[in-house]
Design a protein around this nucleic acid. Structure first.
Lengths: 108, 108
DNA sequence: CAACCGTATCAATAAATACTTATACGCTTA
DNA sequence: TAAGCGTATAAGTATTTATTGATACGGTTG
């Protein structure tokens, strides 16, 4: 049933591209900030303590990966998670990272 | 019960570091090559069609992230997955990437 | 329209990293 | 110990990318 399927070139590229988006601490912080509700850029700037151009840059990368969606409301631009399961995937990665560390230290 | 827990700086760094390891197509190909069984460097070189130093370089990165483990057997060095669930996490990321694309094209 | 606030982009820089070629290292065997 | 195979590292290059400061753009309001 659950046949082991070899991944294709295009699939590898999708995974690599998505992972690259998740490979920056500031982008992860942005994504987690959007877990509960959408936020405007200026609120993100304040919450994260980063410069506004830097936040815009990272939001652009997250948009490229389709991880966030944009909505303009008057002068404000609100960002939200495209897919809530993104947060679950991120927590899965944390779990894996901590498992790997435990295996190294615990009974390496 | 399932309390929403804000991640700490160190946790963000763990996720980012692990994601960076997963953000290269060749490293993903190596990991998938190790899904079934351990492989020697030379076999990986041949299977992937990459130069030996390049494979060694990527294996080093995967070691840094603790994703692979090393075992020497005579003149051969065998690499294996430290944690089998790594493959599941990779497939989860592919699923997320494809969901995001579907949401864009299907009803964006 | 003019001034202004919020956001995006530009230009420039520094750091990280994928990749190649050449070389060194480790183990085995003659 | 010398030669050879398998693997790792070094040196060098090119590309990507995180970050900053300056500037442009879009929408609102006087």
């Amino acid at each position: 049933m659950t046949q082991v399927q070899t991944l294709q070139k295009e699939q590898f590229e999708k995974i690599a591209f998505l992972s690259k988006s998740l490979s920056d601490v500031n982008r992860l912080r942005i994504l987690l900030s959007l877990e509960e509700k959408q936020e405007s850029v200026s609120v993100l700037v304040e919450k994260l303590g980063l410069s506004q151009p830097l936040v815009s840059h990272h939001l652009r990368e997250l948009r490229r990966a389709l991880l966030v969606s944009v909505e303009r409301k008057g002068p404000f631009v609100y960002y939200s998670l495209t897919d809530k399961s993104t947060i679950k995937r991120i927590r899965d990665l944390l779990q894996l990272a901590e498992n790997l560390l435990a295996q190294k230290n615990g009974f390496g």
